[in-house]
């Protein structure tokens, strides 16, 4: 066996001496404070999505609103096709993430490999696109007139298949892996592709997992592609539905005569908060699932073994 897998390093078992205690205390305090700072606004959003609209307008976002109502959620679920939106979002995210991680990690590996003489040139060409972007008009004409991708799932997946930012992050990780691993494998007769899939990938798992998470987020949070290329409302992802809904609620306030609401005040702010909570749910669940890949799954020192 060339590499040992799943050996967790034992360093965590080593008890720290007393002189580490103040440092430990500092670490816990700081981290807890920071976590609270991040959690607090989120709590505000969550609890106020259940607050009555009149209370939000009057008091703003409060820690414990004075009156509660689930009407924002009711409005959201009854007036929209939330479930079909979810379905589309999940489909696009899963398919997109799998494809994107594959393409990007392979590409980054090729760039990082010392053997490629033109690796640097390709790196520059990749980076160049990151800066220059593609411009709205050119991009739109490409997708609609040349590739005929309107109203299709592919329109929401393909443009993000490779993200130069993640490419360079992965390149940095790959370069940190000792080249001896490659050499040992080459001696054993493996070609570059085999080396990549069987050796490099397992070692680079934390960074691959990171990039997976980020791609998933990018696909999940995106409304831009749907806005431009999807006209069929049945194919709207979650974020597009949210953007249309909120944009309309905001616009309605300026158009006199259109605020003839029936009985209950339309929960403009409540709905905005409810939509954030509804969007975040699945991702917050995804992160813990991926976390087990973030820890080191493998010792680099396995080369000797």
């Amino acid at each position: 066996m060339l590499v040992q897998r799943n050996i967790r390093p034992k360093r965590r078992m080593i008890r720290s001496a007393g002189k580490d205690a103040p440092f430990s205390a500092f670490v816990y305090v700081f981290v807890t404070l920071f976590a609270l700072m991040c959690l607090l606004p989120f709590w505000l959003m969550f609890i106020n999505s259940f607050a009555k609209e009149s209370v939000i307008a009057r008091d703003g976002f409060t820690l414990f609103p004075k009156a509660y109502s689930a009407y924002a959620y009711q409005f959201l679920f009854q007036n929209t096709r939330v479930f079909s939106n979810y379905r589309v979002s999940i489909l696009v995210t899963v398919l997109g993430t799998c494809a994107a991680v594959t393409v990007t990690s392979m590409f980054a590996y090729a760039l990082s490999n010392k053997k490629m003489r033109y690796g640097n040139a390709i790196s520059f060409m990749t980076y160049f696109t990151m800066l220059l972007g593609s411009g709205l008009v050119g991009f739109y004409i490409l997708m609609v007139n040349w590739l005929h991708l309107k109203d299709s799932l592919l329109a929401m997946i393909l443009p993000y298949l490779m993200n130069p930012f993640f490419v360079f992050v992965l390149v940095a990780f790959y370069r940190g892996i000792p080249y001896e691993l490659n050499e040992a494998a080459t001696i054993d007769g493996a070609n570059d592709a085999l080396i990549f899939f069987k050796i490099i990938l397992p070692v680079a798992m934390p960074s691959i997992a990171t990039v997976t998470l980020f791609f998933a987020l990018q696909y999940w949070n995106d409304y831009f592609l749907a806005l431009l290329f999807i006209d069929d409302y049945k194919l709207y992802p979650l974020q597009m539905m949210i953007r249309t809904l909120i944009s309309n609620l905001n616009a309605q306030q300026f158009i006199s005569g259109s605020r003839t609401a029936y009985a209950i005040q339309i929960p403009t702010y409540g709905v905005q908060l409810a939509t954030v909570c509804v969007t975040v749910g699945p991702i917050v669940l995804l992160y813990p699932l991926l976390q087990k890949h973030f820890v080191k799954g493998l010792t680099i020192g396995a080369v000797k073994g």
Binding site: T102, V103, T104, M106, F107, Y109, A110, L111, N113, K115, M116, I122, M125, T126, T129, L132, S134, G135, L136, V137, G138, F139, I141, L142, W146, L147, L158, P159, L161, M162, V167, N191, D192, A193, F196
Partner: peptide, 24 residues
């Protein structure tokens, strides 16, 4: 093999990044 690994990425770059650059 390395270029093969890079191929999907290169195709992507050409189609989705360089072609639309004419818009600039």
């Amino acid at each position: 093999w390395l270029y093969l690994l890079a191929l999907p990425g290169i195709i992507f770059l050409v189609v989705f990044s360089y072609l639309p650059m004419t818009g600039h």
